[in-house]
Design a protein around this nucleic acid. Sequence first.
DNA 1: AATGAATGAGGCTTCATTCAT
DNA 2: AATGAATGAAGCCTCATTCAT
Lengths: 210, 210, 210, 210
Amino acid sequence: MFAATQPRRRRKEARPSELTAAALALFVEKGFAATRLEEIAIRAGVSKGTLYLYFDSKDALFKAVIQEGIVPVVAEGEAIAARHDGSAVELLERLLENWWSRIGETEYAGIPKLMIAEARNFPDVARFYYENVIRRGRALIGAALERGMASGEFRRLEVETTIEVVIAPILMLLIWRFSMAPCLGREIEPRQYLAIHMELLRQGLERSRV
Amino acid sequence: MFAATQPRRRRKEARPSELTAAALALFVEKGFAATRLEEIAIRAGVSKGTLYLYFDSKDALFKAVIQEGIVPVVAEGEAIAARHDGSAVELLERLLENWWSRIGETEYAGIPKLMIAEARNFPDVARFYYENVIRRGRALIGAALERGMASGEFRRLEVETTIEVVIAPILMLLIWRFSMAPCLGREIEPRQYLAIHMELLRQGLERSRV
Amino acid sequence: MFAATQPRRRRKEARPSELTAAALALFVEKGFAATRLEEIAIRAGVSKGTLYLYFDSKDALFKAVIQEGIVPVVAEGEAIAARHDGSAVELLERLLENWWSRIGETEYAGIPKLMIAEARNFPDVARFYYENVIRRGRALIGAALERGMASGEFRRLEVETTIEVVIAPILMLLIWRFSMAPCLGREIEPRQYLAIHMELLRQGLERSRV
Amino acid sequence: MFAATQPRRRRKEARPSELTAAALALFVEKGFAATRLEEIAIRAGVSKGTLYLYFDSKDALFKAVIQEGIVPVVAEGEAIAARHDGSAVELLERLLENWWSRIGETEYAGIPKLMIAEARNFPDVARFYYENVIRRGRALIGAALERGMASGEFRRLEVETTIEVVIAPILMLLIWRFSMAPCLGREIEPRQYLAIHMELLRQGLERSRV
DNA sequence: AATGAATGAGGCTTCATTCAT
DNA sequence: AATGAATGAAGCCTCATTCAT
């Protein structure tokens, strides 16, 4: 009785996130418009109507999916940066590692691909995502870069743009995984990819030794 | 009033490529599923039914859009590589410049974003695109990297993965432009972006100076 | 005003057979292609979409209409023939009467006209109908004819073809009723028609008395 | 030159009936609504637009098809009946033979099936067909029957209904040929069928021999 | 006279959403 | 809270009809 009740309760509380998890997986795979609510319901093991107990509409479900996928990652990065007292390149490395283990290896990994695909259909969600994730993520990288430039560890480059160049390969790794890779059976091995990216950055950012 | 377009001077000129151009623009903006054929027709200045004189179905139109957007770019890159006799880093630079002027600044710029968003809904098209564009593009970069490593200009890195890291920022530039940027009014300035990418690569790939 | 049907007492009762009944009536009247699904839905008192809860497509609905209209009639005829121990002409008479009361006077009366009009658009359904209805019906008549010939009651005629000639007027009666008659207001009176048909057969089949 | 011109001229004059012939074949096969004008045009070797040079609309084409298929057959029957001076059963036989050779073995054989399938969608055409074909055909048969009854050759039966019973198998022969037969590969051999029909009639109508 | 490109109304079908149970 | 039958707006697609050539 008790053992039976416990899971049931847990399930009830966990219901919304079970639904958003199912929705995320399908939105990432097929895109928002091409995903039917019934598919989501089936994948979550509920009926179509149940979705409407938790979300007002398909749009609202999309927004919830994005919001849910945001929560703690950037904050952790900010904490890491605040605590960090090693070199700038070590900081970049740790941020990247944290980001990878907290996003790249979790169920949220599909969000960047989804956000990119749907941004223009949900511009307000895109702005929300930008304000709450991208801007803060960029700020983290930007601070690390500036710290390195200030200390003489990095050479001087225009920071804002450098941020984009640094972030881009990380995003492409995820995008590739959720778009072309499943069609080709041609995964990119993330560890090696990130190592080479970091290696190029390490030397590429280094202040020229004359 | 003045520029009232000639009422009926279409027929032979209302070529499939006008239709695919309109389709590409809308597919990129809204995604395949969310784009209505009527919108495409209106944008192309024809009626709904006319689309079916040239394409069997919405799916067929999508495939035509991708195929049309492929043709000559990679071939030019291959010609450039074949003719090149400078340093490897110069070759990378020229390939990147060519790619930018032949894709990044044309109407085809949206294709990577579109392909990424829809790959899993059109796996055969994704494979086609991979075989005819991505694979050949990667081969170009790979050859340049290997040339540089062979000549001692570049340090030795695992080539296949390095290719991905080199290409990623270029793709992200386009993806960003057709996804988040229009929602944020926050364009990335391509010249500066590509310059910094190239600068990081130049020094990042350089054989370690002792 | 008085008999306003209960607003919502459908659900489980809005059974497929209500839908096929509505479809049959309209298919018989207008033909398959010229009948709109919406008309069927309206006649059945449901909405367009509801049809798709029970049938995959308009074609599937057609098939269901035919299948539904087949069930028990021939089996009854077979039982009658098995039990019969009078003369062959009496057997013919009883088969014809049963057929008339079980088909000619029911909602299924339109099926022969429908099947004839649409056979070539649904050849597999036509074959199904042939195997499950026509072939068995012919066998019944054939057995009665052969019994009569064996007993000396009937003269000898080529049986297979005679079957067709015997059946034809019965089918034409229904076909006429659902095709020309409604346009002319000129019904054929079935009892008299069947009586004369039977009368001609009785004497026409009789073994010549010299 | 001359040889080339001749056929061309002939073709021009024959054009409308080439079109109705193509239309008849397809209307019979698929039904009116399911037949596309383009199919008709292709079968007739012209373009879609050309149909509209000769017929105002698809409906008008249908009407022309029926009208064209009517012309001379009944008149011939009437002439035969007028000239006939043998027995009533011989007259029936000759009418039937004429009907068969003038309809059953020609391109017009499909009209009864077509008229039956479409009557309710074209009630005015149905009435036209009734007045100009069916009524006169029935009158022919009716006159023969009455002649036979008057002379004592035939027994007395209610004439109007007997007409129907006499005609029905002939119509069913054609209907079967253009509906079920092509789906089953199971043709009815017409000569034998008509012979048995006539044989049953001969004896069935005969005045009872005591 | 003939063509065939173009049109757009209309039909089949899908699916987000509602609602009685 | 949960279901799933029902709805109907909306999208893809067809095809009769038009019209410039």
